[in-house]
Design a protein around this nucleic acid. Structure first.
Lengths: 152, 152
DNA sequence: GGTATTCATTGGCTTCCCCAATGTTTTTTG
DNA sequence: CAAAAAACATTGGGGAAGCCAATGAATACC
């Protein structure tokens, strides 16, 4: 008597439900991997974005990553405390805080990026490379409703 | 100078990140739709599962939907308060609570299911039917790691 | 018959998301 | 040029969801 995990087909077929489950697993895998470096997902995302965008304001970071300003303050607080980034007033616009990655941040990022990539590989292990690309394509078109709303 | 939403490509290409964003949008769409009937996502999922599985224990419901026992208590509490389900001790196993859908629950479910389906249609509006099916297939294979772990 | 397991429940903790208010600085506008 | 409007960082509060631990009652296993 295998007590199979009954699957309510009604719910299970909904993209929103599947997305939630898949996202939960992805979050768990990545978070666990990053935790081995004492890093959390959002912190890693911000660090990666700072590395890519250069000195950037917290507001811009928040818009890029869909992170609430309130949470951004906390995340940057943590990253500054760990000396992975610096937060200095932007001389060109003194409202803004210019967030810049530090050498230690760059070093940490190199490690956490590997961990994140490995976790993502495990997440998509059941997929062929072509399928993985297709998944990324489909998700990209779903994730943001107005990718070209700007041009309309 | 269009202040485009800068997209950190490093992060944006990660399936885990895309899944998170897409799931967030799906959650928002579905939650907003269900809210118009005073229903929340988890409540709707449980109601739907109860309708499909018949009288069922909370533990089984939790396993089916990956809901924590603690949260299940609250959800069933709410559903009972709204008289959408009944919770009675199972005579065959007095540890269990047999959760059963009520006529009112069936009626409400019919409405909330339409709302949920509509929200999912909007979520996948950018996809062709074939692409939507493929997305469901890919997500299904990603969402649960051990679909056949039982046989290992 | 005694040990282990399952079940429902309560409690506490953490993360993420959303809204509101404030003081400072910039931009827009009249 | 001065007043109004907007943007920025910050603080505060609150809701939804997830995760682990502990408890008492009931069942299953040995």
């Amino acid at each position: 008597m295998a007590e199979t995990p009954y699957v309510p087909t009604r719910i299970r077929a909904l993209p929103s439900w599947l997305l939630g489950r898949a996202a939960a697993r992805g979050h768990r895998l990545v978070a666990d991997a990053l935790a081995r470096e004492g890093m959390r997902m959002m912190h890693h995302a911000v660090l990666s974005a700072v590395a890519e965008l250069g000195p950037v304001s917290q507001a811009d970071l928040g818009r890029s990553l869909s992170i609430d300003p309130k949470d951004m303050v906390m995340i940057v607080n943590d990253l500054v405390a760990e000396e992975l980034v610096t937060r200095a007033p932007d001389p060109r616009d003194r409202r803004k805080n210019a967030v810049t990655i530090s050498p230690a941040g760059t070093r940490t990022l190199r490690r956490t990026q590997k961990l994140g990539d490995a976790a993502n590989a495990e997440l998509t292990a059941a997929l062929s490379p072509a399928e993985r690309d297709q998944l990324i394509d489909l998700l990209t078109r779903i994730a943001v409703p107005g990718l070209d709303d700007r041009c309309s």
